[in-house]
Design a binder for these strands. Sequence first.
DNA 1: AATTTTTACAACCGCCAATGG
DNA 2: ACCATTGGCGGTTGTAAAAAT
Length: 473
Amino acid sequence: MMMMMRRRGNQVNAQNEGGGSSGDSGLINGGGEERENDKILKKGPWTAAEDMMLIGYVRAHGEGNWNAVHKNTGLARCGKSCRLRWANHLRPNLKKGAFSAEEERVIVELHAQIGNKWAQMATQLPGRTDNEIKNYWNTRVKRRQRQGLPLYPPDLEQLHTLRHYSQPPPLLPPPPTTAAPFSFQTPMMSLHTLTMPSALHHLHIPHRPPPPPPPPYNPRSAATTLPPPPLHSPNSASTPPTLQSPSGSTPPPPPVSPLPSPHNQPPFSTLPLIDYPTSITLTPTAADYDFFHNNKRFKLGESQINNNSSSFMLPFSNEQNYSNLPSSSSKNFHQPHLDSGLFYPFKTVQDGSSGDGLLEDMLRESQALAAEANDGRNKEPPKEMKSAAQLDQEEEDYSKLLNDDGPTSMGMAINEWPSNDSGESSARKPSAVTDNEKQPALESQGFTPLFPDDHAAAMSSGVQSWDNFPGIR
DNA sequence: AATTTTTACAACCGCCAATGG
DNA sequence: ACCATTGGCGGTTGTAAAAAT
């Protein structure tokens, strides 16, 4: 079982958890729960069933309005918790696993440039969340301190020091808004296929566009922006150094971020959208028998696809009973992206029974809500939909990605033993490797892997799809 | 092999800003 | 102008697992 997380929920949560509740919401209900409007809100680790409910909700209603989740679905989580769970674990395109050497380099560069701006840094690292980056950095700080190493390599130390004396430069500008309207693989693909943009390799501060007017002074952010001073700074002089452009006399073009800016894009704009909101169907397609597990792609054989299996069941109850799962670890089910894979907590109902119906109920409820929303009124216009051409392109990109294992490609190093700028290795092997080693084969249970093991690296780069989610087409 | 240390990670907390009534 | 709601951000904590001793 995944870690038995501490239950800080036993504490009073005086805050209103993202505003989802009014000030009187802080009634304690021991055992990691909290009451709100007579509903008990859970705290602590999310169960797979809860994840499914949240996913279903988002697919039906889109992101945002997180406090409506528990009101509409009965999911006993506060809106804030839902948002966090979605953003950090459930949304598509997330890349899990150890940071690649290139990613580490980017983080260090960005940190030298902007400090603890995790959210901004995350916009430069496709598939990575601010939380991941923050965790990585904190770990790095501890490690470097213990080793007596500087936080930054010499070239970045210069930049870092400069930052103490000057206006922090703006982040890389957003890409042109004429980019493809939507592709949930676009950010990753661009980095993967183009390797790291030079703008992320070298931070040419002198050539950047002039910084915008300083924002109003914010004592809070001012207090948190500066990173801890370098431990062994080679540039600890009291005067700012002159920063030389590493590119010599030819200024590089303005850096272009491969990512949409959070300032002109809706958050998590990479969510693959469906024909909102009534497209949810319970009819499985062949793709529903196609899933990823443990970095392998599996597909049910024809003999395993029951013609009668028009329903799916969650192989666990609300109380997270994993006993019916294939031999995969519960951890992987609890964290559907851990394998950089897709959701695989589904088994077809072979005996014609309907299963526990949780997912069906969830989907039907979403469908009913969607229908209600549509009911002849000014419904919310459909969000972006993929055209057939887009889907084809994604398929093609995906195929390319699977065949592309260039050593400098962003994201391919997920299973490599990363070493950072100073040549040190992370003290811990990426867990995905050991997980793979541990995993019992699903083949013995009737699943056929569609890709060989080396597919793992490509999948680990964050290529994910909703297409395998039951009832999506 | 046992124990200790370190790392990775998820989730929460507290605060702030934006928004809308 | 005020207040409530909502979403977001950065800091912090606790635990499991891995690595080191």
